[in-house]
Nucleic acid binder design. Structure first.
Length: 948
RNA sequence: GGGCGCUUAGCUCAGUUGGAAGAGCGUCUGGUUUGCAACCAGAAGGCCGGGGGUUCAAAUCCCCCAGCGUCCA
């Protein structure tokens, strides 16, 4: 079955009637008896352009957004909603998405699954979001944005527990009253469209709120989850009702602003100063006055109305769209040529897109993101490069950091969440340098790639364009521009190529998604309760009595030496997790001692992988491998301390990108935009060791997730998004606070000392710190000393003289190698010029057949000497027992010798004597074999063929 | 996370079907010039990223690893 009609009292009391749209077939509610479309179709133009539908907002830009947001939040606060602070645009609490794409993303997956309490209920928020899926349409469609604020009111109902705050009726009533009373929108301009929503495994009824042809909001009533036995079917999947019933709304702040401003595009409503500034900088007015006959205002006005009904999405073919636009404009009495249209809309699209992209970029970097060539960092780089390209297309003489400064001051009120202004500008300057570098290399790459192509060609082969784009970052239109400059003056981009490339990328992405389906086998342990994690109570306990709950064969799980798995009612063994390796040790039962080879966590159990079984129900003593545990704790706590130092010394963008703690060393990956120098590492090391001596205690606590977020923010989740409602927190004074389930020292001083050994690059934007602490630091220092001692001994010098000695020896070694080469060539010269007994002359051609001792290199040098002189035509055959036997034949080029003899044929006819083959040019052939004993026979054969 | 490309002299990069490691710039020496970001002659400077394989022979072909770059999730 499908969903029932959404038939609410609020519709009837306000004079709405239910109709079916003749274009989309969707059911909708309207007060307009004449209306036959739902409002959001290809026949519904924007009605608010030049005639604002929302009264009382005369501001523009940031002030307009601020006022609009305050009105929205105020409305819901007055109706019992708690206003919460927006979340970061980087979704650090989630591992499935990089960016916050909707307000509901704040509460996924923990709150929406029912595992974690919402921060307030009901609540209202204005959540900055970033969506990059439509990035190509930004600036062109008049309405698309990569970054926007989703204003929302959320309700989390649990009807099975008697918690029902409100549902459809109240929700729609709130919405309607706000639109009509707070914003003064006439009822006749509003349509409510019934359009069920599904996504991410959930679904529910939904109402789209259309005002003046623009979708201003969506109200989703999410009360179903995907299930094969569900009795509701939506878009091919089956759903059933779930216990948690959520109201998920989304009101587009920028669209409200647009409807209040009535500007030709949304960009003029929210970024007016920037649009004006860029128009000025780019000399846009000059373009406009180029054709005095053209009524620019009329054109732009008609265009923005058309934008409302033309479906401009990513991937739409550019040329087709232009011709369609021209046709529609002509229908409306606006005569414009394709050339004029492009000359006006292209720069305008860039002028509109730049502030949008800068807004997304500032928000992302402001949250501490570091640009990179992978993951979330790549998204920032992509935006930065788009801005730089648009800037170049517009011939603007501003740097991206100047654009950022303008944006920060004008559109963000100077506010960044985490990153400092200086850090933001430095990052962007680096990105601009990288971009310039890419372009510089691009010129070279294009020349190499197109070398075989005639300068007359009109198109570049598709494959070359794909390669240049995918491997070298050169977009097709850039390639064309650069190729024209480089001499291929008549090349142009083939019609439809860009669309084809997008299609090809989509296919590749689809294929990749198909391959990444994985499943891992899991233990079946049945219902045996859970393991109490006694190591949290006292991290220094080394022994503990416990009862054996279960004991099974290990099968394929765990280390290969482990044959059994033991589950205890409580344990001291820390299971592998959070980058920290599992504990090891022994289980003692009476006389018997078995070895714990590894420990892992599975659900509520700790699995002890052992070399022998123990009887279920018996009691055992856990005996920890204490040295290992101490070392793991040293490294783990040290990693937190070094991470905190990095954040304080290098900046707020430092975030943990991964870590690994073993007995021997610790490894910490941090996000940073520069390679680290030894001086940086020394500073980290100094600060880390200072913490050891100045901070007496670490604070460990457990917090409810909701409170943890509230008190500490999202920097807590350095180690990734934790699961569950309860979060363990480790706080090292004011130095570092993180959610971490590892084992840590109570007193930092117990670590002894910390060394940051070196740093390596993991990927662009991620730096790996190698750390040793405690006894491992001592062991490391000793091994370093030993390296130096042993090396000094080899040279026979004092340790202090080691660098000097090494460089001297290396220099001498190179010099001597050179000398040997010279001497060798001297020997060759002597042997070949002395009128050797190995040479005879046949009809004016000198025949040299010689056996020598030497490698390939000296043979070739010798051959070169022999056959260089055109006044002495020579056929030279050299043989050496080197390797499996080598033969080499040279013939003086451009002489009678070369006319009469072929080196390759000659070689082939004698090479079989050493069981080999060979080849080369007709005047120079070389070969080898596997039987050096046959060398004499081969040379004899050569003599007889040559008649020498 | 996936695809693709790159790694050769101090720097920027060529290197064709596997067969003698190259160019330009820079450096050094000598010459020339009132002078040089000029010209002429010459020289030095290379584990062709690392490891394995195929082959008589690998900078070149195949596999693995690393780093860099790039496009897409």
């Amino acid at each position: 079955m499908s969903l029932p009609p959404i038939d609410l009292a609020v519709f009837h009391t306000n004079g709405f009637v239910r109709k079916q749209c003749r274009v989309t077939d969707l059911w909708f509610w309207t007060t307009d008896a004449e209306r036959t479309t739902c409002g959001d179709t290809s026949e519904d133009e924007y009605t608010f352009i030049g005639k604002p539908l929302i009264d009382g907002f005369n501001q523009r830009g940031k002030a307009l957004k601020d006022a609009m947001r305050a009105s929205f939040l105020g409305f819901f606060e007055a109706r019992g909603h708690t206003i919460i602070e927006p979340y970061p645009v980087l979704a650090r609490w989630r591992d499935d998405i990089h960016l916050t794409i909707a307000s509901i993303a704040d509460f996924q997956p923990h709150v929406t699954s029912g595992e974690v309490e919402p921060p307030a209920n009901p609540l209202a928020v204005s959540q900055p979001c970033i969506r990059l899926t439509d990035v190509d349409a930004v600036g062109r469609s008049g309405r698309h944005l990569t970054t926007f604020e989703m204003m929302a009111h959320h309700v989390f109902n649990r009807p099975d527990e008697g918690l029902e705050i409100y549902w459809m009726e109240t929700c729609v009533e709130h919405c309607h009253r706000m639109l009509t009373e707070t914003f003064g929108i006439p009822s006749s301009e509003i349509t409510y469209v019934e359009n069920p929503w599904c996504g991410g495994g959930n679904a529910g009824a939904a109402v789209e709120v259309i005002v003046g042809g623009l979708e201003l909001a969506t109200l989703v009533f999410m009360d179903m989850e995907e299930h094969p036995d569900g009795d509701v079917e939506l878009k091919g999947d089956r759903y059933r009702t779930m216990p948690l019933q959520i109201i998920d709304t989304g009101y587009g702040l920028e669209r409200f602003c647009w409807a209040a401003a009535g500007t030709p595009t949304i960009y003029e409503a929210i970024y007016p100063e920037t649009v004006a500034w860029l128009k000025d900088l780019s000399g846009f007015q000059e373009v406009a006055t180029k054709w005095p006959d053209l009524d620019l205002d009329l054109l732009l006005g008609e265009m923005s109305r058309l934008n409302g009904i033309m479906n401009i999405e990513a991937g739409v073919d550019g040329e087709k769209l232009v011709s369609l636009f021209l046709q529609r404009l002509e229908d409306r009495g606006v005569k414009v040529s394709s050339e004029q249209f492009t000359a006006i809309t292209e720069p305008l699209a860039n002028i509109y897109a730049i502030p949008d992209h800068m807004h997304a970029l500032c928000n992302m970097l402001g949250d501490g993101l570091v640009p990179s060539n992978a993951k979330a960092g790549y998204l920032a780089r992509m935006l930065a490069r788009r801005v730089l390209r648009m800037r170049d297309d517009l011939s603007l003489s501003v740097s991206i950091s100047e654009l950022a400064e303008h944006h920060l001051d004008v559109n963000l009120g100077g506010h960044l969440n985490k990153q400092h202004r200086k850090g933001l500008l430095e990052i962007l300057n680096l990105e601009e340098e990288r971009y310039a570098e890419m372009l510089r290399k691009g010129v070279q790459v294009i020349q190499t790639q197109l070398k075989g192509l005639s300068s007359e060609v009109e198109t570049i082969p598709d494959e070359d364009l794909f390669t240049l784009n995918d491997s070298h970052g050169l977009a097709p239109d850039m390639v064309i521009a650069l190729a024209r400059k480089a001499g291929w003056s008549s090349v142009a981009l083939r019609t439809g190529f860009s669309a084809e490339m997008a299609e090809r990328h989509a296919r590749m992405a689809k294929a990749a998604a198909k391959d990444s389906v994985v499943g891992s086998p899991k233990f079946q342990l049945g219902e045996v309760g859970s393991t109490k994690l006694a190591y949290y109570e006292n991290v220094y306990a080394r022994e503990l009595e416990a009862n054996v709950v279960a004991c099974r064969e290990a099968g394929d799980e765990g280390p290969s030496e482990a044959s059994w798995v033991v589950v205890l009612d409580q344990t001291l063994f820390y299971p592998e997790g959070g980058g920290q390796e599992g504990d090891r040790g022994h289980l003692v039962s009476g006389e018997a001692t078995i070895t714990v080879l590894d420990t892992q966590k599975q659900g509520p159990f700790v699995l002890h992988f052992t070399n022998a079984p123990v009887e279920a129900g018996s009691s055992v003593t856990c005996v920890l491998d204490w040295h290992r545990r101490k070392q793991l704790m040293d490294h783990h706590t040290a990693v937190h301390i070094v991470g905190g130092a990095a954040r304080r010394l290098l900046g707020p963008h430092i975030f943990q990108a991964g870590s690994h703690l073993s007995e021997e060393s610790g490894r910490l990956d941090i996000t940073h935009f520069h390679r680290l120098t030894r001086e940086d590492l020394d500073a980290l090391e100094d600060m880390a060791n200072e913490v050891l001596s100045t901070v007496s205690n670490t604070e460990k606590s457990e917090l409810n997730r909701k409170d943890a977020d509230l008190i500490h923010g999202f920097d807590l989740y350095q180690g990734g998004a934790p699961k569950g409602d309860t979060i363990r927190i480790l706080k090292i004074a004011e130095h570092d606070t993180q959610a971490c389930g590892g084992t840590h020292h109570d007193e930092p001083g117990q670590i002894g000392s910390i060394r940051v050994v070196r740093s390596t690059a993991v990927q662009d934007g991620v730096e790996r710190l190698h750390i040793v602490a405690g006894d491992a630091a001592m062991a490391y220092a000793r091994s370093q000393d030993e390296l130096i001692r042993a090396s000094a001994e080899v040279f026979g010098v004092h340790q202090d003289d080691l660098p000097k000695a090494a460089s001297r020896f290396f220099k001498e070694w190179k010099e001597q190698r050179k000398t040997i080469e010279h001497l060798e060539s001297e020997i060759v010269r002597l042997r070949t010029t002395g009128g050797s007994d190995a040479s005879t002359t046949v009809d004016g051609v000198r025949m040299v057949v010689m056996a020598i001792d030497g490698d390939l290199k000296s043979m070739t040098t010798m051959l070169k000497e022999l056959t260089l002189d055109v006044n002495q035509p020579t056929v030279a055959v050299l043989g050496s027992p080197d390797g499996g036997g080598k033969l080499m034949i040279g013939i003086t080029e451009a002489t009678v010798a070369a006319e009469r003899y072929n080196a390759v044929d000659l070689l082939r006819s004698i090479a079989h004597h050493i069981k080999g083959g060979g080849g080369g040019r007709s005047t120079f052939a070389q070969g080898g074999g596997s039987e050096p004993e046959g060398l004499g026979a081969a040379l004899d054969a050569a003599r007889s063929i040559l008649g020498g």
